[in-house]
């Protein structure tokens, strides 16, 4: 097998039982696997390849094509900052800069305390509230650099309690 960290592959059993034999389900399986592991470890990808009869090359190809998939672990909270047109026009760049400075990370990175990962996305479809970000399942609109930093600090405070 591969030389990566060992994941608990039994967690995949249910997903594979449901989808492995359904044609064209590779993306669905990877989405569900990512829900389980938080990301897609290499050994999980190999297991999926084996169970679905795909070559590892194909599974890797799919896992690296779509931006939703992550091959490395992310922080506890995922910040998805919208960089859509409306958000761009209304100052998403300044918001991004403020978040990066606050967390001392760049797009795609995870803060040192492991609490936040930042990912810019094309459009969250909440253009009227632009600029917008989503932290986990929650959407925050009409951001300013100060407001965005405040939101992050609040989550941090809650985490510290």
């Amino acid at each position: 097998m591969c030389d990566c960290a060992k994941s608990d592959l039994t967690l995949l059993d249910g997903i594979l039982a449901e989808y492995a034999s359904v044609r064209g389900s590779l993306i669905t399986i990877l989405q569900k696997a990512q829900d389980v592991y938080g990301y897609l470890p290499t050994d999980v990808l190999y297991r999926v390849a084996q169970a679905t009869g795909n070559t590892p090359a194909k599974v890797m190809g799919v896992a690296t094509f779509y931006t939703q998939f992550r091959l490395t672990p992310v922080g506890k909270h995922l910040i998805m900052l919208c960089k859509g047109t409306a958000c761009h026009v209304n100052g998403a760049d300044a918001v991004e800069k403020a978040i990066c400075e606050e967390l001392k990370i760049k797009d795609g990175e995870t803060s040192e305390d492991g609490l936040f990962s930042l990912k810019t996305v094309a459009c969250l479809g909440c253009c009227s509230l632009s600029p917008v970000m989503m932290i986990d399942e929650d959407t925050y609109g009409s951001l300013t650099p100060t407001k965005a930093v405040e939101i992050i600090r609040n989550i941090r405070k809650e985490a510290a309690v």
């Binding site: 761009h88 459009c123 479809g125």
Partner: peptide, 10 residues
């Protein structure tokens, strides 16, 4: 619906 700035389908 991928066009940034469009959300009618959603």
């Amino acid at each position: 619906e991928g066009d940034p700035g469009a959300f009618m389908d959603r």
